[in-house]
Design a protein around this nucleic acid. Structure first.
Length: 831
DNA sequence: ATCTCCCGCCATATG
DNA sequence: CATATGGCGGGAGAT
């Protein structure tokens, strides 16, 4: 039976925790925007409290993002009430939920900003954490390990970790996606599914044949090492743990999401694949169970990070637990993007000192590991070479403008997407940008972009890829620019056969680019664009999104039926929206085709034998501190010249901070921008300018359109303002749902009108997450549904309604056959 | 009964 | 050797 004592203790903990919890949250030591509660409303504190206290909270993390959905508010209130009333009593249920990893993780995350300023690093002391959160150490390790796998933290020494926040996330995800693709996870998944349903009896272990082949091949060689004690990335001299299984598992798990098209992964499949990788053989039941347990642990943390969300897939076999990716869309793996970003975060292995590239490499490749050795030396060489080249290039005159433009764009993008900026900041930025002055800036940016494009790759600019959608490509003209800015250098490693990619700083990067255009040139941008249109999983997201919470049952009906959801509207800030959008970004898988070509070339990160991916980004420069600062300074200075006033004015942060922030993002910016279109918002803009122009084949002003699009997307500019994309957009009442819906269908068919609508909706809507598609639909003639094509097959055609429907129980789900899944139909439902 | 997944033993790694 | 990490699986709460 239960141990009364225990319970009591727990309850106590809970109580005590609350108070402390709140405080810290509100006033985090490091003032960052992080705090979960978005807008700092008077009630925010309460919310936090409640959330902390309430048992159900855990799942609702997502709501946070959604911020305002009415349901959410209601819930919160509800919770509030309850808790308030019960206040002291709450001991009532120390229940298991209150001790859940997810909740714990939530608390943990609340202590640190999503995007810590580079200048001030936050360190994590496990002892403190365990004490403050009142948890056993073991649990913290679970959390930290997963965070490590995402490079959100890194270990410095015993008891000591550094908090990086989400700065590295984009790179990490990109790297993971890439590896996942290399690993042919998609194939593996399909194989498993196939086998599963072909042979009912699959349970036992003989699955080798096919599996083996798939597994064994290619990357497997590298992957196989994974579980081995291989070396691990050791941040400084410290640590070098051998068993990184949880970390590795976490990465692989994430990879599965990133590569699979409906970004939904069932635990069963994940477990099988993960097991299969290490040991092709024994499919043991107990092993399977253990794997599942671990996956749940990981999933809880990832859920707290809002990267995934729990759902259920119903196949012929029955309903199976699964998770859906709700994190940021990963940029198409273009080599360019990869770069840098984290210059600031550079793995700082050792507390401060870090010096030359050599050291860097050393840090990355600990001498201990034999396997590493080989690579080590070669890597260093490569680094050197690159550096030299870089230097040369740098000396050459470069146009600062470009950089600044990129930066600027990036900044904007950052504001939107990156959740990191505090809302305040974002708001101010937006405000500022919203002014006419912003236009000017934009223009500049656009010009810049164009220039870049031209410079970077002639081919890209003029005629993107014929194969790809021509129409789209144009607008993308901007994209090329991005390439130029970011260019990863790839180092082929003959012996191992593995290639390492080194990321350069922006300044460097572009230099490099010049120097070796070949790599950069990839038409990726175009591809991306196309991809964007084509894929999109938003729909699904939306559907699921809503509920996130436990009590969804109650609310759901309402939601589904009525679009009303956001009665309160009150506080959704643009930033929030942005966040949502960003999260909602559909995955674009389109790019895959090119991959094959590129694969060899592009490597965003090095793959270690251990299986744990470590981004090399940091290494780029010799001295981490120096480097970053230098580079930053350089970049910044350039920027400042051009845009200093706007930026500074906009952002409240100190210049130094800005610099850092910008830089990292910098490379990515272009890509992101491009991608953003994927997200719903983008589509409209594109459709207007891009599509039209595309037909013509020459876009009058691609860059400007792109810019507008960006701005709109971000919310800086009101939907109609710059580019009167669609009148419709403005009034679209459709709630957040629209977002999910949005998207386009196949790469080929893009419907402008529809798209535009979606965009508008997004802006206004919100994101409540509820699915009100049906009701809302009537308003707009063109329907958003068309958008859903990817996921749903709309028999009726574009105009038909989506196949989504509410179940009797109020749960929404996709009707059978609607879900677009390559092999079979699935039903996805939230839990 | 099944799904989740907390708890904490105990092997290892680290210092 | 004392601790810090973290693999692992029993078994119990949640559904």
């Amino acid at each position: 039976l239960k141990t009364p004592l225990k319970q009591a203790a727990t309850s106590q903990l809970v109580l005590t925790e609350r108070q402390p919890d709140c405080q810290p949250l509100t006033t985090p030591p490091k003032p960052k925007e992080t705090p979960p509660a978005d807008p700092w409303t008077p009630t925010s504190n309460l919310k936090m409290l409640i959330s902390a206290a309430s048992p159900e909270i855990r799942s609702r993390e997502q709501r946070r993002q959604l911020s305002d959905s009415s349901s959410e508010v209601l819930q919160t209130k509800h919770c509030l009430q309850e808790h308030l009333l019960g206040d002291e009593y709450e001991k009532s249920q120390p229940s298991r939920k209150e001790k859940s990893l997810g909740l714990l993780c939530h608390k943990f995350l609340a202590r640190y900003p999503d995007y810590p300023s580079p200048s001030q690093k936050s360190y994590i002391c496990l002892d403190e954490v365990t004490e403050e959160l009142h948890v056993e150490r073991r649990r913290i390790y679970d959390i930290v390990n997963v965070l490590e796998s995402l490079h959100m933290v890194s270990r410095l020494a015993r008891n000591r970790y550094v908090w990086h926040g989400r700065h590295n996330l984009p790179q990490t995800l990109q790297a993971l996606k890439k590896v996942g693709e290399e690993n042919k996870y998609i194939q593996q998944i399909q194989m498993i599914k196939k086998r599963e349903y072909e042979h009912e009896f699959d349970a036992d272990g003989e699955r080798n044949e096919e599996m083996a082949s798939s597994f064994g091949s290619s990357e497997q060689s590298e992957m196989s090492f994974v579980e081995l004690p291989g070396v691990e990335f050791r941040a400084a001299s410290v640590n070098g743990r051998k068993y990184k299984s949880l970390r590795v598992m976490s990465q692989k798990f994430v990879m599965l999401f990133l590569v699979s098209t409906p970004q939904i992964v069932s635990l069963e499949v994940a477990a099988k694949i993960l097991i299969g990788e290490d040991q092709l053989e024994d499919l043991d039941k107990s092993k399977f169970k253990t794997k599942i347990r671990r996956l749940y642990d990981i999933a809880n943390v990832l859920s707290s990070l809002k990267l995934i969300k729990k759902v259920h897939v119903t196949e012929e076999r029955g309903r199976k637990p699964a998770f859906k990716w709700t994190g940021p869309e990963v940029l198409p793996n273009t080599q360019d993007t990869k770069l840098e970003a984290t210059s600031t975060t550079c793995s700082p292995p050792t507390s401060e000192s870090i010096p030359s590239k050599e050291q860097c490499s050393k840090a990355l490749f600990p001498s201990k590991g034999k396997q590493n050795f080989t690579r080590h030396s070669s890597l260093i060489k490569l680094v050197k070479t690159i550096e030299n080249d870089r230097r040369k290039i740098q000396s050459a005159p470069t146009s600062p403008v470009k950089i600044s433009a990129s930066m600027y764009l990036f900044l904007i993008f950052l504001l939107e997407t990156s959740f990191s900026l505090s809302q305040k900041k974002t708001k101010s930025c937006i405000k500022y940008l919203g002014l006419p002055s912003s236009h000017k800036t934009c223009r500049c940016v656009a010009e810049e972009m164009q220039m870049k494009c031209a410079l970077s790759s002639p081919e890209a600019v003029p005629k993107p890829e014929p194969s790809q959608q021509p129409g789209l490509s144009q607008p993308l003209g901007v994209c090329p620019a991005s390439h130029s800015s970011v260019s990863p250098v790839i180092l082929p490693h003959p012996p191992s056969g593995v290639s390492y990619a080194i990321y350069l700083h922006p300044s460097q990067a572009h230099t490099v680019t010049t120097y070796s255009p070949g790599f950069m040139l990839q038409p990726l941008p175009c591809a991306n664009v196309t991809g964007i249109k084509s894929n999109n999983s938003k729909v699904l997201n939306k559907i699921t999104t809503e509920e996130g919470d436990t009590q969804r049952g109650t609310e759901e009906p309402t939601k589904s039926l009525a679009a009303e959801e956001r009665p309160d509207t009150k506080s959704e800030t643009s930033s929030q929206r942005c966040l949502k959008r960003s999260q909602a970004l559909p995955e674009n898988n389109l790019i895959k085709r090119r991959k094959s070509d590129e694969e060899s070339l592009d490597t965003s990160s090095t793959f270690f034998p251990s299986g744990y991916l470590i981004p090399l980004t940091h290494c780029t420069h010799g001295n981490k501190a120096e480097c970053s600062s230098k580079e930053k300074a350089g970049v910044c200075s350039l920027q400042h010249t051009a845009y200093s006033s706007p930026i500074t004015g906009v952002i409240p942060m100190p210049a130094s901070e800005l610099k850092t922030v910008n830089i990292p993002a910098f490379h990515i910016t272009p890509l992101n921008i491009m991608l953003s279109p994927n997200s719903i918002a983008a589509a409209p803009v594109l459709s207007n300018s891009c599509l039209n122009s595309s037909s013509t084949s020459s876009a009058p002003n691609p860059s400007s359109s792109a810019l507008n699009f960006m701005l709109q997307h971000i919310g800086l500019i009101p939907a109609g303002v710059q580019v009167p994309a669609n009148p419709v957009l403005q009034h679209v009442p459709v709630s957040s749902q629209s977002e999910s819906i949005s998207h386009s269908s196949g790469s080929t068919n893009v419907q402008e009108g529809k798209v535009s609508k979606n965009i508008l909706q997004l802006d206004h809507g919100g994101l409540s997450g509820k699915y009100s598609a049906v009701p809302s639909a009537p308003k707009e003639p063109q329907e958003p549904q068309a958008v859903t094509e990817n996921f749903f097959r709309t028999p009726g055609g574009p105009n038909t309604e989506p196949s989504l429907s509410a179940n009797s129980d109020g749960t929404q789900r996709i009707s059978q056959g609607t879900l677009y899944i390559p092999q079979r139909k699935l039903e996805v439902s939230e839990d």
